[in-house]
């Protein structure tokens, strides 16, 4: 396949460029930010990019809303992607609200919404569990050695 990477190509695919930029921005925020709230914001931007992809793909140039008017040969936009994305928007809202609810709970129990601080606390908990086990094992060993004597 051959194509020219020129201005008409770039402008002709403008909605895809915007989609890619938005998607990557969102994904970058999710990965790079440590604040749980900012991650949710990133996730939202990421999802909105997909909404844009769907909505722009259904648009027909010069098309009207898909309502039967009786005029023959009238071009109308494809309503299906728009309906699909309505579902995806609902899912997105549910995800966001659940994520926010979780953040509230995390803030209540951990006292912070910074990922690295939470991670540190979790690791400390894990380490203390391990230490307790090692201490108990050492105590049993010592006991065993003492009883052998």
């Amino acid at each position: 396949m051959e194509f020219n990477f020129d201005l008409p190509f770039i402008l002709g695919h403008l909605n895809y460029w915007l989609f890619v930029i938005l998607m990557l921005t969102g994904l970058y925020i999710v990965v790079a930010r440590g604040n749980l709230l900012k991650k949710i914001v990133g996730l939202n931007i990421f999802q909105v990019a997909v909404f844009m992809l769907y909505i722009s793909m259904g648009k027909v140039a010069g098309g009207t809303a898909p309502i039967l008017t009786g005029t023959a040969g009238e071009a109308y936009s494809n309503p299906l992607p728009h309906v699909l994305i309505l579902t995806a928007i609902v899912v997105g809202i549910a995800t966001t609200s659940l994520g926010l609810a979780l953040i509230v709970r995390i803030n209540e129990t951990y006292g912070t919404i910074e990922e690295d601080e939470i991670l540190e606390m979790d690791q400390q908990k894990g380490q203390s569990e391990l230490d307790a086990i090692n201490k108990a094992a050492a105590a049993t060993d010592a006991q065993g050695a003492a009883s052998k004597k």
Binding site: V30, K39, L43, L98, G99, L102, I106, I118
Partner: peptide, 11 residues
């Protein structure tokens, strides 16, 4: 830790 696990899973 269930909370942070659920959050990770959500993301």
């Amino acid at each position: 830790r269930a909370l942070s696990a659920a959050y990770d899973y959500l993301i």
